[in-house]
C-alpha cells in the first residue's frame, strides 16, 4: 500500500470525508507559495500541487492564468517541485502535471525528483491508461501513488481498467469540461462515482466543478471526498492563503455535517 493510500484510508476508516485542495505552485508568488501550501495543508487531508505548464488544456481560466503567472515569475514544472519541498507540513502532497514535462526529463527521473521533494503521488490529466504503464511503474518504484482520472464518458470497461491502476485514490471527474467553478454540481457526478465504486475499493474523490461547501457536501454523499481547485486558487490570489484556509474550513464543516 502506498503511503498516500495508507494516510487516506486511516481518515476514511474513521468516518471522515476527504478534503483535497489544489494549489498552483508559485502563487500567490514565489516567496509566498511555501507558506500558502502550509496554510492550506493545515485544513486538508492531502494537497494537490499543480506544476505550472505552458499549455494546460484541462484547465479553465483561473488555473490557466495562475499557471501562466507562475511561469512568468520563473517557476517551471521542475523548479515547482523543489519550491514545494521547502514547505513544512506532514500533509501528503500530490503533484498534478501535464505529461510533457515528465516526458522531457524522463519518467524515472521525474519520479525520482518528485519523491525526493517529498511528494507522495502524481496526477497526470493528459495520459490515458493505454499510454501510462511505464510511468506507473516508475512511480511505484518511488512510492508515488498513481491517481487516475475517470470521466463521465468512460465506459464501464474503461473504468475497470483505469481503476485497476489506482494506488492512491480515484479522481472522479464530475462533469465534462475544464477546471473552474459551476453554479451547481453536475448530475453526472453520482453515476461516475458509482461506476468507480463498482470497479474498486479505493477512495473515490470528486473533482472539477466543485466550488462551494454545498457542492462538496452533495458530492461526498456518494464519494469519499472532494478535490477543490479553482475556488482555492481564486481565494489565494484575491484574498490570500489565510482566507483560502478559512474558506476551506467552511467546506470541511459542510463535509462533516
Amino acid at each position: 500500500m502506498t503511503a498516500l493510500l495508507d494516510h487516506l484510508e486511516t481518515a476514511r476508516s474513521a468516518g471522515r470525508k476527504l478534503l483535497v485542495p489544489y494549489l498552483v505552485a508559485g502563487i500567490p508568488d514565489v516567496a509566498g507559495f511555501p507558506r500558502a501550501l502550509e496554510t492550506v495543508a493545515a485544513v486538508a487531508d492531502a494537497v494537490e500541487v499543480g506544476l505550472p505548464y505552458s499549455d494546460p488544456l484541462m484547465d479553465g481560466p483561473v488555473i490557466a492564468s495562475a499557471s501562466e503567472r507562475a511561469i512568468r515569475s520563473g517557476v517551471g514544472p521542475l523548479s515547482a517541485l523543489e519550491l514545494a519541498s521547502t514547505a513544512t507540513t506532514t500533509c501528503p502532497r500530490i503533484a498534478m502535471t501535464y505529461y510533457n514535462p515528465i516526458h522531457r526529463v524522463g519518467e524515472p527521473e521525474f519520479c525520482r525528483v518528485a519523491a525526493a521533494a517529498g511528494f507522495t503521488g502524481i496526477i497526470v490529466p493528459d495520459i490515458p491508461v493505454e499510454e501510462s504503464a511505464s510511468l506507473r511503474s516508475a512511480a511505484a518504484e518511488h512510492d508515488l501513488a498513481w491517481v487516475p482520472l475517470v470521466a463521465p464518458t468512460s465506459s464501464a470497461e474503461r473504468v475497470k481498467s483505469i481503476a485497476a491502476t489506482a494506488t492512491g485514490f480515484i479522481y472522479a471527474v464530475s462533469t465534462l469540461g475544464v477546471t473552474g467553478a459551476r453554479t451547481s454540481l453536475s448530475e453526472r457526478a453520482a453515476p461516475v462515482v458509482a461506476a468507480c465504486r463498482a470497479a474498486s475499493d479505493l477512495p473515490v474523490l470528486v473533482g472539477i466543478g466543485v466550488s462551494t461547501p454545498e457542492q462538496a457536501r452533495e458530492a461526498s454523499v456518494s464519494a469519499d471526498g472532494v478535490v477543490v481547485g479553482s475556488a482555492v486558487v481564486r481565494h489565494v490570489l484575491e484574498r490570500g492563503a489565510e482566507a483560502a484556509a478559512e474558506w476551506l474550513a467552511s467546506v470541511r464543516t459542510a463535509l462533516d455535517a
Partner: peptide, 21 residues
C-alpha cells in the same frame, strides 16, 4: 525540436529543458 508531447501526440516540439512549450 526535441521529442515531446503536444496537442495529444508525441512528435518533435520546440520546448525548454523543463518541457515548457
Amino acid at each position: 525540436g526535441t521529442p515531446g508531447v503536444l496537442h495529444g501526440a508525441r512528435s518533435l516540439v520546440l520546448q525548454d529543458d523543463e518541457g515548457l512549450i
